[in-house]
Design a protein around this nucleic acid. Structure first.
Lengths: 184, 184
DNA sequence: ATGTGCATGTAACTGGTTACATGATTCG
DNA sequence: CGAATCATGTAACCAGTTACATGCACAT
């Protein structure tokens, strides 16, 4: 379900606006952000970098070294900066937001009340765990992180909290209805 | 981005728990939910249905008709029900549309304060528009909708509201900082 | 010697989308 | 008569992942 809009290509281009980097640097950096967006696979990254060159959005500076493989440092071009800006402004897709969970919800609603409750509880556990991971990331980052990371983390926290609140509310409601049915 | 977890395969299997359906029925039904999760393409659906048969998760009842193409009605098997339940309980991973926005946020934070503000505002417009679409869906659905759709809509609304609130808050903060810098 | 870090990449696969092909029926 | 709806599907493509391949340097 690669949703055509989560474009690795432009994201790495965006990283190059901070400073020129090699593929390896990029992977390391993205990995340090894995709590937000996961990592990048080399099988995705290297072809993407080559494509950037081909389209004139980036350049390489190849540092040859006798002992090790050459270090290829990529940089963004002016054309790249222009295209990047367009990507940033591009809608992220008609909010089919939270699609994965919504699909499960639609399916789970066909289960018995007890089954549905079990599934919402399960989801709550997961949500709480990932919320905790965000908190840990927040603690770990301290004052060192840059604006982008702080913004991204804040956003993720807000959404995670909203989800938890919804789950708790709904869990209460569904349980109550279930017990009413039992009694009635 | 095919996020390996948004599995069309299991979602259609889940729809079959409500009642046996043909591929066409499924497309129509999912299309009626397009405000939540978008549609299904036939190029995705028909292969998925065939795969369900191959794996023993579903069966077909082929109604031959002289005048029209045969109508193939699919139903879920017990094995299918078992696997489906596992899918429902499976973690969903960070949502891909959230990921798409976070990536843009990380990139946009490298722009000037004015640029960053413009980008957050842009996102706010989109978020408000999709929030509005959800409200319309809510109004349109009235009392007719089933539990699953009501749950899904409520969830989507909560998350959308949280996102809007975050955007407004952050827009205020970033603007203020920008004007402080200007003055200082 | 053994594993970890540096550093590059390819091949096969996955889970989709887009666009196309086919053909009858029904509605305006 | 033409458009929409019913109803099936295929082929080409896309963006990405997984697993693999290669090889040197440095620390344990």
């Amino acid at each position: 379900m690669p949703a055509g809009n989560v474009s690795l290509r432009y994201f790495v281009l965006g990283l190059l606006t901070q400073q020129p980097m090699s593929g390896y640097d990029i992977r390391r950096f993205v990995k340090s952000l894995s709590w937000l967006i996961g990592g990048v696979s080399s099988g995705g990254l290297y072809p993407a970098l080559r494509a950037l060159l081909g389209d004139g959005l980036g350049t390489v500076d190849i540092k040859l070294r006798t002992d090790r493989p050459p270090r290829k440092v990529y940089a963004i071009t002016d054309v790249g900066r222009r295209e990047l800006r367009q990507w940033v402004d591009r809608p992220t897709g008609p909010d089919s937001s939270m699609k994965a969970f919504i699909m499960r919800l639609l399916v789970a609603s066909n289960y018995s009340p007890a089954g549905l409750i079990a599934r919402i509880e399960q989801r709550r556990l997961q949500a709480a765990a990932s919320r905790l991971a965000l908190d840990e990331a927040l603690a770990a980052m301290g004052d060192s992180a840059d604006l982008g990371q702080r913004l991204a983390l804040g956003y993720a926290l807000s959404v995670a909290d909203a989800e938890l609140a919804w789950l708790d509310r709904e869990l209460g409601r569904v349980s109550q209805e279930a017990s009413l049915v039992e009694v009635g």
